[in-house]
Amino acid sequence: MDREYTGFFKSSYSGDSEQCVEVAPGCGVVPVRDSKNTDAGVITVSREAFKAFTDSVR
């Protein structure tokens, strides 16, 4: 069953970049989608995995 996630946003650090993803907070997991193709679907990752990812790209 697909879950409807709301409140997606992209980082303010993205600026006018065309290569962005959006995330939705407060779901127990981190839903991620393509900001240019929001109907393409959502992948979810654990909060721990998302934190490890963001820590590695800073």
Rank of each mutant, 00 (worst) to 15 (best):
M1G: 14
D2S: 14
D2M: 13
R3L: 03
E4V: 09
E4M: 07
Y5F: 15
Y5K: 02
Y5S: 02
Y5R: 06
T6M: 08
T6W: 09
T6Y: 10
T6V: 07
T6A: 07
G7A: 10
G7S: 08
G7P: 09
G7E: 00
F8K: 03
F8M: 05
F8V: 02
F8N: 03
F8Y: 09
F9C: 09
F9A: 13
K10P: 00
S11L: 04
S11W: 07
Y13P: 14
Y13I: 11
Y13Q: 14
S14L: 03
S14R: 06
S14V: 00
S14M: 06
G15I: 01
D16R: 15
D16P: 13
D16H: 15
D16G: 15
D16C: 12
D16F: 13
D16I: 14
S17M: 05
S17G: 04
S17T: 07
E18I: 13
E18S: 15
Q19C: 05
Q19V: 03
C20E: 04
C20N: 09
C20Y: 10
V21A: 02
E22Y: 03
E22G: 01
E22I: 01
E22Q: 09
E22W: 01
V23M: 08
V23I: 14
V23Q: 04
A24P: 10
A24M: 04
P25E: 11
P25N: 13
P25T: 05
G26Q: 08
G26W: 02
G26H: 03
G26F: 00
C27K: 11
C27F: 08
C27Y: 11
C27T: 07
C27E: 11
G28R: 00
G28L: 03
V30D: 11
V30K: 11
P31Y: 12
P31N: 10
P31D: 11
P31G: 06
V32Y: 07
V32H: 07
R33T: 01
R33D: 01
D34A: 01
D34P: 02
S35A: 10
S35E: 04
K36S: 04
K36Q: 10
N37K: 14
T38P: 15
T38Y: 10
D39C: 12
D39R: 15
D39L: 12
D39F: 14
D39H: 15
A40N: 12
A40D: 08
G41I: 01
G41S: 01
G41H: 02
G41F: 01
V42N: 09
I43G: 05
I43V: 13
I43K: 14
I43Y: 11
I43N: 09
T44D: 05
T44M: 06
T44K: 10
T44E: 09
T44W: 06
V45R: 09
V45L: 11
V45N: 05
V45D: 07
V45K: 08
S46K: 06
S46M: 10
R47T: 05
E48N: 12
E48L: 07
A49T: 12
A49R: 13
A49H: 09
F50W: 12
F50G: 01
F50K: 03
F50H: 03
K51L: 15
K51Q: 12
K51Y: 08
A52G: 04
A52E: 11
F53A: 01
F53G: 00
F53L: 02
F53C: 00
T54E: 08
D55H: 07
D55R: 13
D55M: 02
D55E: 06
S56P: 00
S56I: 00
S56H: 03
S56V: 00
S56M: 04
R58S: 07
R58D: 06
